[in-house]
């Protein structure tokens, strides 16, 4: 019996270790490929280890990718700030009480979360063209909000619901206006949750590909779209592709380490509530 149990735990640890290896191998490929000599990056059969070379990194930093990385930073910061500025108050309104349009807004947010962006993107492309919003940061931020705003409103509503209403009422009895009570009493209590939402918005905006692929332009191409240029039909440069991928992965890995506790809640947002 004892031996049997031990064998089971041996098997399960083996399975978990295999799972960890599978999770890590693609990252290993990215890291190793980015510091290979370029002949070794596409060698047949593949060379897992090759002499160290930073040629791919040098080329990457000389090329246009750096500009698209800058675009990614601008778009990510702008999207995060704007989505929080609009979504946090709406989340509060949802958590507290009734107002006309609440049901409609709630239903519409749920619908937009269910419907993939491919449904909105062609009309958006057409009338953004009319308004000269294609190839502009403003247009991209607005389009990103189509998916991120519903997420933000839900998440924030759930955090605001955790703040006891009595605390807010006490502040209002003391003469604070609703806006003041919100800003000075409720928001500070919910700030850890709001920051987590901010991190998740930033990661989503940083990783977005589909929307800028269609609505972006020469001046606003973010790194996710720029990355694809390294593996076009004419040239395949896995070294630069890997190096560029690493610049996309590392910031997210750092944020993930810091914010992982709150992320669990964010992963399931929109299905638990709504």
């Amino acid at each position: 019996m004892h031996r049997h149990a031990r064998r089971i735990s041996f098997i399960s640890i083996t399975i978990l270790l295999v799972g960890m290896v599978v999770a890590v191998v693609p990252y290993l490929w990215i890291i190793l490929t980015s510091v290979k000599r370029q002949v070794d990056a596409t060698a047949i059969p593949p060379k897992i280890i090759s002499p160290l070379s930073f040629k791919s990194w040098e080329q990457l930093l000389d090329g246009p990718f750096l500009g698209s990385l800058g675009n990614s930073v601008i778009i990510t910061v702008a999207t995060t700030v704007a989505t929080l500025a609009i979504g946090v108050p709406a989340g509060y309104a949802f958590a507290r009480g009734r107002f006309p349009g609440r049901r409609f807004l709630g239903g519409w947010l749920l619908f937009s979360r269910m419907v993939p962006p491919v449904i909105f993107i062609i009309p958006l492309f057409l009338f953004f063209n009319q308004l000269r919003l294609t190839n502009s940061y403003l247009g991209l931020v607005l389009a990103y909000m189509s998916g991120l705003l519903p997420f933000t409103v839900w998440m924030c509503a759930s955090y605001f619901e955790d703040v006891p209403q009595e605390i807010e009422e006490a502040a209002r009895v003391d003469g604070a206006s609703r806006a003041r009570a919100f800003l000075t009493v409720v928001l500070p209590l919910a700030i850890p949750g709001v920051l987590t939402v901010g991190v998740l918005i930033a990661i989503a905006a940083w990783s977005e590909y589909f929307i800028p692929f269609i609505l972006g332009g020469f001046n606003t191409t973010p790194a996710t779209v720029g990355l694809v240029n390294f593996v076009g039909s004419a040239v395949i440069d896995w070294g630069q592709m890997a190096a560029a991928s690493l610049t996309l992965v590392v910031p997210v890995a750092v944020l993930t380490l810091f914010a992982q506790r709150g992320m669990l809640r964010g992963l399931s947002a929109g299905a638990v509530k709504g």
Binding site: I86, A93, M145, S146
Partner: peptide, 15 residues
Amino acid sequence: LQIAAWPALIVMIFV
């Protein structure tokens, strides 16, 4: 509450 909620609604209508 309306003032807090409507900017989100307006953006959602637009996009």
